[in-house]
Design a protein around this nucleic acid. Structure first.
Length: 207
DNA sequence: CTTTAGATCGTCT
DNA sequence: GACGATCTAAAGG
């Protein structure tokens, strides 16, 4: 497959073994998220992420070391994907981080569609490119990431499906907006943690 | 642009 | 039986 664009080197799964999930979430901005589904490639630049701090973060599904069938995957080693169903409708895509046993994860909340835009539009039955993948449920549908793939490793193919991360472009720290996480009112004081990261539009105008 | 209500089902209690 | 790490359409400004 010919992809004549820079920054398409895959990131090794080892990269996600780092123990600072906040730093990882920030660092993933500007990287490229790619899926290959039955030979069809789609990709986009990661524009929004949130860090979830394992067993000590009240917003995390694994808070207090909760160990259920669903959250089991969060305790795998970094580089696995954790995808769960939200509100009965949406698959939300996370990358598990840290070493095995520590349930940290980064939620990818938005991408700027790049390759395979027409495919994404068809999957979402939508024409407006700007609204195509600017939300966690939206990007999963656009990239055909389903919660049945939860537990799969990055770069590993299963049933014609594969997902991975590429280096993309370096991000200027000045281009990052930091904010509180969304939709976690139940997390009490941890709802105030500044663990949501957004790439400014300016990032995409630079050369 | 903003607000609001309704959809929908796996997971956990 | 209750509840989401959300999205959309519709209606109003």
């Amino acid at each position: 497959m010919v992809r004549n664009i820079p920054g398409t080197n895959p990131v090794n799964n080892d990269y996600f073994l780092e123990d600072d999930v906040v730093s990882l979430a920030k660092g993933m901005l500007g990287m490229r998220l790619v899926t290959l589904v039955d030979g069809v490639l789609t990709s986009g630049i990661i524009s929004e992420t949130e860090a979830y701090g394992g067993a000590t973060d009240k917003a995390s599904h694994a808070y207090g070391g909760r160990h259920t069938k669903r959250t089991r995957i969060m305790y795998e080693q970094g580089g696995c994907i954790y995808v769960f169903l939200c509100y009965g409708i949406h698959s939300l895509f996370n990358i598990v981080t840290n070493v095995a046993g520590i349930p940290d994860a980064v939620l990818v909340r938005g991408i700027i569609p790049d390759e395979g835009v027409e495919t994404m539009k068809q999957r979402r039955n939508m024409k407006n490119e700007r609204l195509l993948a600017n939300g966690p449920g939206k990007l999963s549908q656009a990239m055909a990431i389903h919660y049945r793939y939860s537990g799969l490793e990055l770069n590993q193919q299963e049933n014609g499906f594969k997902v991975w991360i590429e280096e993309g472009r370096k991000t200027d720290p000045d281009d990052i907006i930091t904010d509180v996480r969304v939709g976690i009112d139940y997390a009490e004081e941890d709802a105030l943690l500044p663990w949501r990261f957004i790439l400014k539009k300016a990032h995409f105008k630079k050369k």
